[in-house]
Design a protein around this nucleic acid. Structure first.
Lengths: 341, 341
DNA sequence: GTGAAAGCGCTAACAA
DNA sequence: TTGTTAGCGCTTTCAC
């Protein structure tokens, strides 16, 4: 069954010419007789010749490929970001290799080495929630492989970065809840070694301060992404002597599940408890009541990251670039009803 | 900046030994002096040596990598399937390259050639909704590269297949609606050149027949995946002289959006209209009322596909294998309330 | 236990 | 316009 794969050598032999001529024809060089080229192309086609990218890339010392490491694409934020990366890359004619760290430091490291071994020309990375050190990226970046971190960025590597205005939008979201009359605002925070999570928490805290509201440690939940502990957190919040009257959650999944549980326990949304999520998933529109959320422009972030990276791959002495993409507060009914006091 | 990448040759020179010895040490051969090995490993580590996978794979004539082509990972079914593929592959120590066709035939073809060019040792594919011919797979499969199609399989290529009991589960779902007392059951079908869609439609039709219900063409919507036309379909169904009293939809997104629109138009779910979706997305639990759905075991399908493929990569003369994974009807309130007549 | 040499498939000087 | 040759980084016989 395993018909030997056909190479330029085979084509050359069959046509009684040299393999350089075949190579020239196949790679669209001009200095070749039209007729010869014709014959070569025809035969290549007949034989279903597929160029060996390994050989080409080895020879060229570049792969025209960018490596992508994201936590996981079941998280639609990252799926959409990858979509943005691929769109821009396709336009530019560069290939993309996607890896998932599954939120694991060790997988992230493995992915990284595997991509570098495959000699990708650049990297786009959003670090795993477990990753709290950066020694794996440094030597690679210092060797001159351009890296663009996005969303979950790596602060102490002096590479390019694409992220959102976390602080500002968390501030704005919190302030929105406050002006709607909510006073006991709980915050479901992400891991604090992540730049994003830290800044969002800061925005929340500063908004409280600005409005002279007390900061209560008991209202701040330090969650891990996808920890499956939402039910536990909800129960905890509901049994507090002073139950919160609003929840600002690190992502929509947590917000929606929490809202669902509270509803089942007889709480009215948003009269008893308001909700505000993060990411503005499609589902926000369809839950009852529709969930207010922060529109986190995943696709644009991916696209921006790819733009920056491809640019750097083509102009290696460009300085690293930071780009901030604005997110947007989308107000729906889950935080919309209570009157201003 | 661009410190030249270090190769075994560099290490050999620096240590005053031959590159074959370095190679032997690095690839964990036993016939090497412990002390020499020690020195080599230490230096490799210091220099952050990264083996060149291109060179290794070119030499070995294999890459220990499987190529995956899925329509799109923003579709969580495929994201979860990829998760299953990666889990099994990781365990087996093989690499995975993921491509997305974005439901486009031409992208699928490009992905395919790019993966073959990269000399993947096998392929796992779920074809795009646009793909209605198979000439691109045939020559590749015939050359001896093992392929496993999953979910959206390619019938006329005699490769391995992993799919669900589409006919049976659609039959069961339809029958469930019938026994709950629904009589005018609309069906949102997928593209009919897809094996899945065709069998699901058959299951629906046969269930109607078994219960002596008339088949109405006007109740069958031929949709495309992700067509963004749900609103149009919904309006169409609602204005029918005999409005359907149940909708069985090709996926949960369509079902949820449709349900949402009908609710806004004053219809009671499930009293006026029942809903049944496909895929059992997490969100089914959180919408109002919770959506009944077909649990489509995405992760398991991916895992099975990877198992079969890896097996075939290791034992090239194995026959293609077909595996059917059972799906499951999950009944929730959206189809649960009406009494049996 | 180690080295020399050939070759994986391809491209790119350089010659002719 | 075409052929010859060297070499990308690595593994793997075959000698020693």
């Amino acid at each position: 069954m395993d018909k030997k794969t056909v190479t330029i050598k085979d084509i050359a032999r069959m046509l009684g010419i040299s393999k350089s001529t075949v190579s020239r024809a196949l790679s669209g060089r001009s200095d070749i007789h039209p007729e010869t080229k014709q014959k070569i192309m025809a035969l290549a086609n007949d034989l279903h010749y597929e160029p060996n990218a390994l050989a080409i890339n080895l020879k060229q010392q570049k792969t025209n490929t960018i490596g992508v490491i994201v936590p996981e694409t079941v998280n639609r934020f990252f799926a959409r970001a990858v979509g943005g990366i691929q769109k821009v890359s396709d336009m530019a004619g560069v290939n993309v290799m996607i890896c998932q760290s599954n939120e694991s430091y060790i997988s992230e490291k493995n992915n990284l080495h595997s991509l570098v071994s495959s000699r990708v020309d650049g990297l786009i990375v959003s670090i795993s929630s477990e990753t709290d050190r950066t020694d794996h990226f440094k030597p690679i970046f210092e060797r001159g492989i351009p890296i663009v971190f996005f969303d979950r960025i790596c602060e102490d590597v002096h590479a390019s970065q694409v992220y959102t205005d976390n602080y500002e939008i968390a501030f704005e979201g919190t302030e929105h809840l406050i002006t709607r009359g909510y006073r006991r605002i709980a915050f479901v925070a992400g891991p604090q070694h992540l730049f994003n999570s830290r800044n969002r928490l800061l925005g929340y805290l500063d908004a409280l301060k600005k409005h002279n509201l007390p900061v209560k440690e008991s209202y701040i939940i330090h969650s891990h992404y996808g920890s499956g502990k939402v039910e536990e957190y909800t129960r905890y919040l509901m049994q507090l002597p002073q139950r919160p009257d609003a929840v600002f959650a690190i992502n929509d999944y947590a917000a929606i599940e929490m809202m669902h549980i509270m509803k089942k326990n007889g709480l009215k949304i948003p009269d008893d408890v308001a909700f505000l999520g993060f990411n503005n998933e499609d589902m926000c529109r369809f839950v009852e009541p529709p969930l207010s959320s922060i529109d986190h422009p995943a696709h644009d972030m991916g696209a921006a990251a790819a733009e920056i990276l491809i640019n750097q791959m083509r102009h290696p002495d460009l300085k690293p670039e930071s780009r901030i993409i604005k997110s947007k507060l989308v107000i729906r009914e889950s935080s919309g009803a209570r009157l201003v006091l």
